[in-house]
Design a protein around this nucleic acid. Structure first.
Lengths: 200, 200
DNA sequence: ACCGTATCTGCATCGAGTGCATTTTTGCAA
DNA sequence: TTGCAAAAATGCACTCGATGCAGATACGGT
């Protein structure tokens, strides 16, 4: 049962995100002040920080959603699965769960991660947190077989390879004729590279 | 011949770093303002930003030194080397070259990376830049054999593995009570564990 | 000693973020 | 409906990081 309070709060929250995305696109991130966003959502400036701890955090609302998908894949381990199997399945599930990232928020986020240092810093921070959490669950899924440091290395290699490949993809001025298909192939290649030494 | 101007500038630069490190240790990063640092170095607050673009940047003065070691290892490629060979050697050299990790600056930096989000963000950013640069040189060292995306994945996997292992090591202060004393030993151990699957 | 230039400095200003006290809104019971 | 406590919103003052600008100062070469 969602109370009126919760509904209203969620509505303002979404209004803030929508207003911010629109302003970021039109005037750029740096030229948009928190006061602008709040005004566009018809909210006092001070109240903004009751919804988001900082200007960057507005861009990462459902930060733990993808982590959940990965954790779920790990916890559904079958006895014959290797850690690498779980990571591959987790990545696949994450790709499904994030619905191809078609929201306008996701679009502007991708662009800002590449251009605004503060936003990129926040994104990297979240990625690091996700790595730690996934590594912890991986250790729990393989008791006695996988120690923390090795799990950290494995997850780091995996996520590092994927994001390294993605970064190289984005650096290239690619014509997006069939870029999506190529990207998928590249990602598969990247995971293969990262996991090859770990397969036994 | 270094002019008096350059010498003076270098002296104040070092004075700023020293003063900052001392203040960070005694009062903490957040409780130390830029004005405090400038005052301790007998410099106007405004002048601080002529030396460092931001408060965090003071902590990373020689940011590209370790990258140079890696690049050097890559450029000394022998014909029979594979990309993985070069990265293994590069990371090994980096581990050796970080012998100056004993400076007070490095000590306080390690601590602040773990505790202050802004500092960690900056460190991650520098690591990402290093990855991109190394990947670029790797592509140049294997013309026609290695594309950008694959190189990005490979470098990401290596560096991700090492830093993931290092992070896992640092997260656990309980185990190996003596290991926490020396950051360099941690780096060595993390590298060994992270890269073991790649060795043949 | 002189002058052009690099550097330093004070000052005004902006924007992010916080603490606090006050007001408004909501949930719930009488 | 009214009364009341909790939650949320708001205004205000303030700190701090960072930038732009103009004037003062120090340096290097002549």
């Amino acid at each position: 049962m969602t109370s009126l309070r919760e509904r209203k709060k969620e509505r303002t929250r979404q209004a803030l995100i929508d207003a911010a995305v629109e302003l970021f696109q039109r005037r750029g991130y740096d030229k948009t002040t928190v006061a602008d966003i709040a005004a566009a959502a018809d909210i006092a400036t001070r109240t903004f920080f009751g919804y988001f701890a900082s200007k960057e955090e507005l861009l990462f609302p459902e930060s733990d959603e993808r982590v959940r998908a990965a954790v779920k894949a790990i916890e559904e381990r079958k006895p014959e699965d290797t850690p690498a199997d779980l990571l591959l399945r987790a990545l696949h599930d994450v790709g499904e769960a994030s619905g191809e990232m078609v929201s306008p928020l996701a679009a502007v986020r991708v662009q800002l991660i590449q251009t605004v240092p503060a936003v990129r810093g926040r994104a990297l921070q979240l990625q690091l947190d996700a790595q730690r959490e996934i590594a912890g669950h991986l250790v729990a899924a393989f008791p006695g077989e996988l120690d923390r440091v090795t799990a950290g290395a494995l997850v780091g290699a995996f996520i590092g390879a994927v994001s390294g490949a993605l970064q190289a993809l984005m650096d290239n001025p690619t014509t997006n004729a069939n870029a999506n298909a190529n990207a998928r192939a590249d990602l598969r290649e990247a995971t293969a590279i990262a996991l090859r030494p770990w397969r036994r």
